[in-house]
């Protein structure tokens, strides 16, 4: 309430011309380059196109039907989708176990905390393309340092072609994407931990709660909102990931489609397939993905709300 009154006293008026002059540059750029293409994007998927952007006719949901009935989409789309889900699930599990553990332990440190935060966040700031190529070199079966280290440790049997085998390529992709991303949850969890009044935890220990129970019943419920927010961001990131899989397996998700994801499929259909109606089909794919992400994010928010109410 106090905030509102203060805010109201700040607000002033200006002549309409001045307002327009202040707003117009941002609005024009935003509307022309972002809003207009976005609005047309939702319509693209409902039309048939020929050779680029030549309109043929309105064909209702036929492009969506094609995705679910015709090759190669009917084979590649579910596979890519499962890979996206695996990347999301793997990241979710690791950031809420390892990531949460690291954040809680860092929170107990004094001066060293900032140093660890910086070290853990560094991979997050490096381009996913650089990360992908770097790990391709590090994991290379010929002169990769990782396999050299494994052999030095006497673990020759583990020194496989990590990104060359379909069975190991996806797990490696998941682990590397966690390696890059996890500093972000660690930082956010740390900030949320810092906002918990120490009296709460102290009160619980006076009441005789041990470390684990204090964490479970005092700290964890207070972290639910931030864990929820980060999980939704992880979901969006997992469903939209493009650059890291591209660096590992190129546009086809090699080996044998083991690292294929939806955005790579979209890229292939849009720019490499040469199909006459590529625009219609790939727009349908992008629309489906958009709806799935939107639905998932909204569902996630509802789940967090419910969880918060249950815990409080």
């Amino acid at each position: 309430m106090a905030q509102k009154i203060k805010y109201a006293s700040n607000v002033q008026r200006a002549p309409a011309v001045v307002v327009v002059l202040f707003i117009l540059p941002a609005f024009a750029l935003f509307a022309a380059v972002l809003l207009y293409p976005m609005a047309s994007a939702l319509g693209y998927s409902l039309f048939e196109w020929r050779g680029g952007a030549n309109l043929v006719r309105f064909n209702w949901f036929e492009n969506f039907v094609v995705l679910f009935t015709e090759q190669p989409y009917v084979e590649q789309m579910p596979r890519a989708f499962l890979h996206n889900i695996a990347i999301f699930a793997g990241t979710l599990v690791l950031q809420n176990s390892l990531g949460l553990f690291l954040a809680v332990q860092l929170h107990k440190l004094g001066r060293m905390r900032r140093l660890f935060q910086v070290l853990y966040t560094t991979p997050y700031l490096v381009s996913p393309l650089v990360v992908g190529y770097l790990w391709t070199l590090l994991l290379s079966p010929s002169f990769g340092p990782v396999n050299a280290a494994l052999e030095w440790l006497g673990l020759e049997s583990l020194a496989v072609s990590w990104l060359g085998e379909p069975t190991t390529a996806l797990p490696v992709l998941i682990l590397v994407s966690v390696w890059q991303w996890i500093g972000f949850p660690v930082l956010l969890y740390g900030a949320a931990l810092g906002a918990i009044p120490p009296e709460l935890s102290d009160a619980a220990s006076v009441d005789g709660a041990d470390g684990w129970r204090r964490f479970r019943h005092v700290t964890l419920p207070l972290l639910t909102p931030v864990i929820g927010t980060v999980s939704i961001l992880t979901f969006i990131g997992g469903m939209e990931t493009f650059t890291l899989p591209y660096a590992f397996g190129g546009a086809t998700g090699s080996p044998a489609g083991a690292t294929d994801v939806l955005s790579l499929l979209f890229f292939r259909v849009s720019f490499q397939s040469g199909a006459s109606n590529a625009l219609g089909v790939s727009s349908a794919l992008a629309t489906l993905l958009f709806l799935f992400i939107l639905g998932g994010a909204l569902l996630g928010r509802r789940m967090i709300r419910a969880q918060e109410e249950r815990l409080s």
Partner: peptide, 26 residues
């Protein structure tokens, strides 16, 4: 409304915008 419109841009999935942007630039 203007503030809301700008904020909606935070939620735009880039992939959905790529093709229309490509043809706009084309």
């Amino acid at each position: 409304a203007l503030e809301g419109l700008f904020m909606s841009g935070l939620l735009i999935p880039f992939m959905l915008a790529i093709l229309p942007m490509f043809y706009l630039m084309d």
